[in-house]
């Protein structure tokens, strides 16, 4: 694994999560540990407990994992997964999906720790784009 903080993108849409993952790798570097967990097990719109759990395991390279949900049931599903397998270094973060993931991914790519990645994602709420 890369040794950098892992990031899991939880979305109702597989395409949304996969597209954001692609963007993060373009900006933050191809070696980032970013996993997409979008859609249901059948590929429809919704969220999947199993996909989220598998993505967390895959993203975990030892430096912790940041789970970023888009909204609604993504938050609930991510919470249930984390409640079932509590780990101090796997955290769900309250941040805008695209901006939060981008800020966290770029910082993670510099070798920053989990706390710094969490802070970067949360700060994204307050960064104006215009």
């Amino acid at each position: 694994m890369t040794g950098s903080v892992g990031i899991v993108l939880v979305s109702h849409s597989a395409e949304l999560a996969a597209g954001l993952r692609e963007l993060l790798l373009q900006v933050g570097g191809q070696s980032l540990a970013v996993e997409a967990a979008g859609g249901t097990d059948e590929g429809g719109i919704g969220t999947s407990y199993d996909l989220v759990r598998a993505a967390i395991e895959k993203a975990d390279g030892g430096a912790g994992v940041l789970v970023i949900p888009d909204l609604g049931s993504s938050v609930l599903t991510a919470r249930v997964v984390l409640d079932d397998r509590p780990a101090p270094d796997v955290v769900i973060v309250d941040a805008p999906f695209v901006e939060g993931a981008m800020a966290a991914a770029v910082i993670a790519g510099t070798g920053a720790d989990l706390a710094a990645a969490v802070a970067a994602a949360e700060e994204a709420r307050d960064v104006r784009k215009l």
């Binding site: 373009q26 933050g28 570097g29 770029v106 910082i107 790519g109 510099t110 920053a112």
Partner: peptide
């Protein structure tokens, strides 16, 4: 976006 990412990576060193 891409150069901004590279700026962060450079500054973080």
């Amino acid at each position: 976006a891409r150069p901004a990412g590279q700026v962060v990576q450079a500054a973080a060193r």
